[in-house]
Simulated scan of single mutants.
Amino acid sequence: MTTANEREQTHYFVPQPSRWPAVGAVALFCLGLGAAFAVNGQPLGKLSLGVGVLILIYMLFGWFGDVIRESRHGDYQGKEDMSFRWGMGWFIFSEVMFFGAFFGALYWVRVVSVPTLGEMDYKILYPDFEPSWPLLTGPGITKPYQAMGAWGLPALNTLILLSSGAMVTWAHWALLQGRRAQLKLGLLLTVLLGTLFLCLQMYEYGHAMSELNLSLASGAYGMTFFMLTGFHGMHVLLGTIILAVVWLRVMRGHFDGQHHFAFEAAAWYWHFVDVVWLLLFVFVYWL
């Protein structure tokens, strides 16, 4: 179904040639070069990484600033809006596949690999192996560790993240109703709850390493635990930054009930982060 804007629109906005892709390529080159130097212990590694990060931040501010100015100028109508929605939808789909691969690895280890290694055919190779989850014996496990429990800090983080999802939904409703004060408050609470989640997760990691002796070297359990929760934490950080930028735009009077796709995109991403955490809580912490 086409909207009124799409029916009235006579052309599709195409921006002028931009320098930002080239600037981004330079940033990525510096980051890749710095990573290679750092891995090999070269002194220029940290310098190249720092320069790459600074150039990348400069590119992000400049490129997104141009997009915001184009949006405020009214260059984006119905057709561009639909393109943005499709783009964000495919981006979130790619993230679903990304986490699906890690959840698939967790499933394979728990349901296929561990029971198979516990069969009689492998007893000669691994006589002391116990086919239980989390793994406490087996190749690669050099120190005993304790698994992270579900109740306590992980359950509190679940409540915090679900509350943040409710706050961003409240903010969206306030935007549609034209209630700017509630919109600002709801977004601010979402950002603060996301920041609190990250702080508690850092504390959880410190507790896991120091008190539970849990690390990436703790066999398949340690690897899957830190890979899944770590990548999720990275996405929470990204989502919090996006929401903070949206909040700053709201404070400057941007968005209204009809034109607010940037807000919607941030909300979609945040709800995706919430759903992934619920799956993590069930399959990594609880079961």
Rank of each mutant, 00 (worst) to 15 (best):
V96Q: 14
W86S: 05
M88L: 12
E80A: 01
F64H: 14
G65M: 05
S71H: 05
G62I: 03
G87T: 06
F91T: 14
F91E: 10
D66G: 11
W90T: 15
M88V: 11
R69W: 05
V67D: 15
S83N: 11
W63C: 06
D75Y: 10
F64T: 15
E70K: 02
R72H: 10
S83R: 11
G89N: 06
H73N: 11
S94A: 12
S94F: 09
G65W: 06
G65V: 02
S71N: 11
E95Q: 12
Y76G: 00
E70Y: 08
D75G: 01
M88Y: 14
F91S: 11
G87R: 06
D75Q: 09
H73P: 00
R72Y: 04
S83F: 11
E80D: 04
M88D: 13
V96E: 15
F91R: 09
W63A: 06
G74K: 04
F93Y: 14
F91K: 10
R85S: 03
D75N: 11
Q77Y: 06
D81P: 00
V67P: 03
G87L: 07
F64V: 09
F93I: 08
I68R: 14
E80S: 02
R69F: 00
W90M: 14
D66S: 13
Q77G: 08
G89L: 03
G65N: 08
M88K: 09
G74C: 02
E95H: 09
G78D: 02
I92K: 03
D66P: 05
F91W: 10
G89A: 07
R85D: 05
R69K: 04
G78W: 01
G87M: 06
M88C: 10
G78Y: 01
K79N: 03
F84R: 04
E95N: 08
G89S: 12
S83L: 14
I68E: 15
E70I: 00
G87N: 08
Q77S: 09
W90Q: 15
S83D: 13
E80P: 00
G78C: 04
F84T: 05
R72N: 12
G65K: 02
G62F: 06
S94D: 13
R72K: 14
I92A: 04
G78A: 03
